[in-house]
Design a protein around this nucleic acid. Sequence first.
DNA 1: GTCTATAAACTGATAGAC
DNA 2: GTCTATCAGTTTATAGAC
Lengths: 243, 243
Amino acid sequence: MNRGRVLHAEWRVVHAMKTELSGDPIRIKERILDVAERLFAENGIKETSVRAITAAADANLAAVSYHFGSKEGLIRAVIARRVDPLNVERLSLLDSYEAETGDAALPLESILHAFFAPSIHHCLQHPHFMRLAGRMVSEPDKELHRAFISHFEKVFLRFKGALARALPNLPEKELLWRMHFLLGAMIHTWTNHSDLEWFSGGVLTLTDELEVIEKLITFCAAGLRAPLPAQPRGDPNNTPPHR
Amino acid sequence: MNRGRVLHAEWRVVHAMKTELSGDPIRIKERILDVAERLFAENGIKETSVRAITAAADANLAAVSYHFGSKEGLIRAVIARRVDPLNVERLSLLDSYEAETGDAALPLESILHAFFAPSIHHCLQHPHFMRLAGRMVSEPDKELHRAFISHFEKVFLRFKGALARALPNLPEKELLWRMHFLLGAMIHTWTNHSDLEWFSGGVLTLTDELEVIEKLITFCAAGLRAPLPAQPRGDPNNTPPHR
DNA sequence: GTCTATAAACTGATAGAC
DNA sequence: GTCTATCAGTTTATAGAC
């Protein structure tokens, strides 16, 4: 009748012993996450099969279903593992800069440093993940895309506020466009280490984290501070084309 | 013996008549390209099956193999169809601006206009393609990625030269970094119409092409003109971290 | 928690009739 | 140039033994 249950109880003892003995019992979940992160980044999400992941992680095919429910569950876990700590870093950097400055508006460069530095740091520490993250920004699967960018909503609003205070004369619409461009510059840096070297004939590399952060801050601070275009007579909401 | 051949000859006559009569005989190739462009952009390349394309294009499954050799052949055809005309536009715009100016160095804004305007114009005319193009920049398949960016090599070098003449005091390495960021801002605009509206709470839309071009030029021109960071004593190749 | 075996569906490509 | 039929290989997910 309930012979299966008895057998299962027996097996649990055996399994506990095996777990005790083998070197990497619980780490299998982490191993799968590591391998999935790398393969998703190198070959794409859709083009990476669960089979390839479990094989490379020295796990069984069924392990993904067991630990993450499905392939999509694994994808979400891969992202959540790194993206939240990264945003916590950003916010706490901004917090500490604001604490230093007191009531005065924060210099643009400090805000940008708090925003850029953690992700550029991650580009060297977890290059696979940042490539994947960059690709998630233009991910065609709407559910997955939404799930990804929803992690950034709070950070975006916080930094938008800080930038608005540092640039009191910049209209909101103008600020939003400039933040859009700034995000593009940053995200492109996440993904495109390879083109960087190819286009530049080997002049540029993403090896010196502090250098990249400084270049990015210089470029974007200047872009944010760009003078407003002269308003055309008549329609203050419209801007004239170039020449 | 060669009865098949005779039958084939007979069929050719029938087919020619059918082709004459039906409204869209040769256009099937174009229809497949149109549908593939849209589906690749909306759902991704790997996630779009040849079956889905031919069904939506009202063509037979075998049509892709016949006209493009393989799915990869179709992908390359989708890209080549639009990317080359776009780059021709860029170069001829730059040509015409240089002809106007004569020997004097071109204003930064004119160079950027020649570079940005055609692709932003395409964002409204062929939004599907530009989304796809933006995703090709971080395409994981190396062959496909190379095939894509190779279309831009000539354009890149031409504009790099123009920018170097307009910014004679900017070291090459600095110029290359700034071009990298500028590319990021542009490409992010290709792909992310949706996030734009989401993040901005509906304030930003990609409906006024001239507005976007102007914003992009203003931001990037200021970034390119940013003063060089003070050189640290000792190592002139290294730059100090922020604060 | 791990494994094998297998289901059920889908993929790109092609041979051969018309 | 178009079509049907089919091959051979994938894919994710799961049932059931251990």
